[in-house]
Nucleic acid binder design. Structure first.
Lengths: 158, 158
DNA sequence: GTCATACTACTCGGATAAGAACTGTCCGAGTGGGGTAGG
DNA sequence: CCTACCCCACTCGGACAGTTCTTATCCGAGTAGTATGAC
């Protein structure tokens, strides 16, 4: 899995902690995490295309959450970066088996494919049940200073 | 995910359908599925290293299941090909956060990492619950001719 | 006919290239703000 | 002093290289079976 997923999730968390009216530039977020700015920008663009963030050009521009953090699941973020296709893609080896039929889509019928898909669904379900808002809340419970510390640190990097 | 995973699972299934005393060469399996022989051989070597198959050199040599199909889970096969490390590897971006502590291993403490690990565990649990023996049985229920057809087809490719 | 021996063909195993995907970088289009000059 | 205009710095966005991982290939070490020749 691309490391951009981790960058994206932590960036969304930071954006959830600043004022919704205020945009944060890719350069600020990159400086915050000590990451390459241009490449992080590339990942954030993917989040914009997925409808998770909105972007603004020019001075005082940057990225904002496009919707409430409670409506952004981890699966949304992962899908935005990695793409929607599942990790295991069936090549339909069953077609090479004697007695195979041409009219069957083995991506659905093959029992191996089904088992792998079932595991993939379990993974997706777990990620879909956890939102940016959840994690934001839980982090604040562990360390109540986080919102204020994050805001001030980002302000320094403007 | 590497496509070798699918090759490996289907190869194990075929090996489960031949006589346990009889070895099947990589060339036979490759011809069966119309796959590149040398590369399939490489994947099967990984299964040998993982203790799933045993190999024999020379004429009438090849690969055999190392143990009962019911004791070989899909997770075993996936792990043999892909490696044991989970897909999401935490880079500990939390360390860049103001108020972070050096003495904490954020690969365990970071809530993002925990959420991703939880999803990974759900995926692994699903794969661990499904064995080569399970699939073998289910396929035979759908098509009782499969064992005999597989054996004879492999014999042709000798 | 039987046994020992050498040979041959076959198989795995690891070392070696080609290709793709991920990672990282750079520059241009567009935008908003601030400075400046005129009223 | 107020306003309109122009310039500039800032930001995203997509096009362009470098690096790592996956995919694919090739050749050598070792082995089992077979043929051959001697006894």
């Amino acid at each position: 899995m691309s490391e951009g997923v981790e960058w994206a999730i932590h960036s969304c968390l930071n954006l959830a902690w600043v004022e919704p009216a205020e945009a944060v530039s890719a350069a600020q977020l990159a400086a915050f995490f000590a990451l390459p700015a241009a490449y992080l920008n590339k990942q954030l663009q993917a989040l914009v295309r997925a409808g998770i963030l909105t972007s603004t050009s020019g001075p005082r521009g940057g990225f904002r959450l496009a919707r409430d953090p409670d409506t952004i699941s981890l699966l949304d973020v992962v899908t935005a970066i990695e793409g929607a296709q599942e990790a295991f893609r069936c090549q339909q080896l069953m077609k090479s088996r004697p007695g195979a039929r041409k009219d069957i889509d083995y991506r659905k019928e093959c029992l191996v494919s089904q088992a792998m898909r079932q595991a993939d669904l379990a993974w997706r379900r777990t990620l879909a049940d956890r939102t940016i808002g959840d994690i934001k809340t839980d982090v604040e419970k562990l360390d109540p200073d986080t919102p204020e510390l994050t805001r001030s640190r980002l302000a320094e990097l403007r």
